[in-house]
Write a protein that binds this DNA or RNA. Structure first.
Lengths: 201, 201
DNA sequence: CTTATTTGGGAACGATCGCTCCCGTATGTC
DNA sequence: GACATACGGGAGCGATCGTTCCCAAATAAG
């Protein structure tokens, strides 16, 4: 029963996510966002309360799209576990280069920029980390169950190593390291899942 | 032949490093730095030209102290290679908690906050990465030479994996993960250096 | 003691920050 | 058509940003 909105709220969140992702929280101003959307600060504030709330929306949107896509790619669906893992990691370090490179992972960028100071943000980054960890865990369990991975594989340890390696890969992609350079790391991480020696020295 | 400076330039750099490290570049204002040092912006500017230059000084100081200390701890000096590696990584994820936790690595924080946009900064973060990579490489070569590590160890691949894992560990420490939680990752990373199976499935 | 020179710091520059007010405009309800 | 309601946007809020200017204080050189 009033004048309808002339811009799509979801579009605004998408644009905000893109901008926050590339520049970070502090380096992105409300007017930057408005310029990208042809919106004035007042319209943005009426819809999203304030910058911090809009940032949370952006984080949630990222998790619902990009993070969800990553989780989807971690779903084995009958394919070889190692291949799924490798394709997933290669995609992680090359996916943002649809446009320009060096965007890294929005969650990782946020976690390092804002640390543990903001509780609401920390909650979301931690949840995103946990989802990834569990997805990797499921994949490894499936691989061990199907016999593709060693029966005595220490899944917990492997999950931690793979998850941490992925964070490092995201940092390196943000730092400008090309996917081809990172492929060595990815292959080494996957080789980790091979059976260990029977008689360790 | 004029009035001498009343503050120690090096002290200022140390304080600036601490502040930039904890808050990042964009969230640290020149007045924040001045307040910590009981200095006015004008004095800071006369000495350090501008904020960006001071930040470069802070990065250089970090590399000359904290990074150098890390490199020192990576020097085997006759100790078992695996032990050196493990102690080094454990120190990496717990060293900044002299005061409060969650500072992570200044270089990693900088690389993710500013990405590849700034050439002078990128140059420094990349150099810091390379020094670490080479130190790990030397250690692995020494271990392989002494027989502590498998003769057929793929040093290049292991260096990439360990280096990337360390970046991930730094992110996780910044995100508030306790050293005890990260120890699993560290042990898994080191186990990577054990001999592989003779007949891989 | 002068003089040249550099310091420290208070004040202020224009620009931008996050955010709010207000008013003309457009739309659903009656 | 009249009215209530939410919109878009321009203007502006006080605060802070990075940076500069200027002047009194301090000191080395003469």
């Amino acid at each position: 029963m009033a004048r309808p909105r002339q811009f799509d709220e979801q579009d605004a969140v998408v644009t905000a996510t893109d901008l926050f992702w590339r520049r970070g929280y502090n380096a992105t101003s409300v007017r930057d966002l408005g310029a990208e959307l042809k919106l004035t600060p007042s319209s943005l504030y009426r819809t999203f309360t304030d910058k911090h709330t809009l940032f949370l929306r952006a984080l949630d949107h990222y998790r619902a799209t990009d993070s969800a896509e990553a989780e989807r790619r971690l779903d084995a669906a009958g394919r070889p576990v190692r291949e799924v893992l490798r394709d997933w990691m290669l995609w992680l370090v090359s996916c943002p280069s649809d446009g320009e490179p060096g965007r890294g992972c929005f969650v990782v960028n946020t976690a390092t920029e804002l640390g543990t100071a903001d509780a609401e943000i920390r909650e979301r980054t931690e949840a995103a980390f946990e989802v990834t960890r569990q997805a990797v865990r499921s994949l490894l369990l499936e691989g061990r169950g199907s016999g593709e991975l060693p029966a005595d594989l220490d899944v917990d340890a492997s999950v931690e190593l793979l998850f941490t390696t992925v964070l490092g890969l995201r940092v390196r992609e943000r730092a400008g390291h090309a996917p081809e350079r990172l492929a060595t790391t990815i292959d080494a991480a996957i080789k980790t899942l091979d059976p260990a020696s029977v008689q360790p020295s």
